[in-house]
């Protein structure tokens, strides 16, 4: 059963068609969740007892940081699938992840600086969490630069897949950096074993934002991946079928 699903999605025309139909089903719920999260985070959640209203940065900083990691895992996984099973659709998905991931990594760093200044008294520290997150940005940028260096898409796919897979070691380093080393950054509040250390009025908006951003990423990924799939296609019959559907 699982293999039928796997092979279907490996078929470019099937992927193209399903991705197009699926996109609004991710995009609109993402918008609803995001608006609900904003109302909850900016309006309904009480000020933090230590950080006051400054803690509300978490409702954009945490989703950006979460996406920066999740997108990398999606990218490395699909790159591996593309490499192992020579699946063009998987390579197309991996290639689509990089620009989205890079932008959210930069956003996580930027909002982190704006969060760090009032809470720690500094925009920047060469702290394990911040440094490993900066490395993630360089991994995304390196991946994109490597792809751009090839004229042949198939060769770009294979070379960049290796980089994506090797770079995945940075993901657990980022996640555990605040536990392994003495970091300025706080330890996990939500992504940990046991109960999240936040009252529901603060936690629910955060979960809504995390879910909304994840679905939004799904919609972006499907849109970009359709273009990437089309770019790899040489079969005139289905290109014209895909373009007719648009």
């Amino acid at each position: 059963m699982a293999w039928v699903w796997f092979h279907r999605f490996g078929s470019p025309p099937y992927f193209y068609r399903v991705a197009r139909r699926l996109t609004p089903w991710l995009g609109w719920p993402a918008l609803i969740l995001g608006v609900a999260g904003l109302i909850g985070g900016l309006g309904l959640a009480p000020p933090d007892y230590q950080q006051g209203d400054g803690f509300r940065i978490i409702y954009v900083h945490a989703p950006a940081a979460w996406l920066s990691l999740m997108i990398y895992v999606v990218m490395a996984t699909s790159a591996a699938v593309g490499l192992i099973w020579r699946m063009n659709v998987a390579h197309a998905v991996a290639a689509s992840c990089a620009p989205i991931g890079a932008s959210f990594t930069a956003l996580a760093l930027a909002t982190g600086m704006l969060y760090g200044r009032p809470m720690w008294g500094t925009y920047w520290q060469w702290d394990p969490r911040i440094t490993s997150e900066l490395l993630l940005l360089f991994l995304y940028l390196g991946y994109m630069a490597l792809r751009a260096a090839f004229d042949d898409v198939a060769r770009a796919d294979r070379a960049s897949a290796v980089l994506a897979i090797v770079g995945v070691v940075d993901v657990p380093i980022i996640h555990y950096s605040v536990i392994w080393w003495n970091s300025l950054h706080q330890a996990p509040t939500v992504m940990k074993f046991g109960r999240p250390s936040m009252p529901a009025s603060m936690l629910v908006p955060l979960l809504l934002m995390l879910a909304g951003f994840s679905l939004y990423f799904g919609a972006l990924l499907l849109t970009r991946a359709r273009g990437e799939v089309l770019r790899r296609e040489r079969n005139a019959h289905w290109i014209s079928a895909a373009l007719e559907e648009s």
Partner: peptide, 19 residues
């Protein structure tokens, strides 16, 4: 924003821009 406006609003503005 309880005195944190210069940090909170640019964070939200940047996020809206990237989105």
């Amino acid at each position: 924003m309880g005195g944190y406006a210069v940090y909170v609003w640019p964070s939200y503005g940047l996020t809206a821009t990237v989105v």
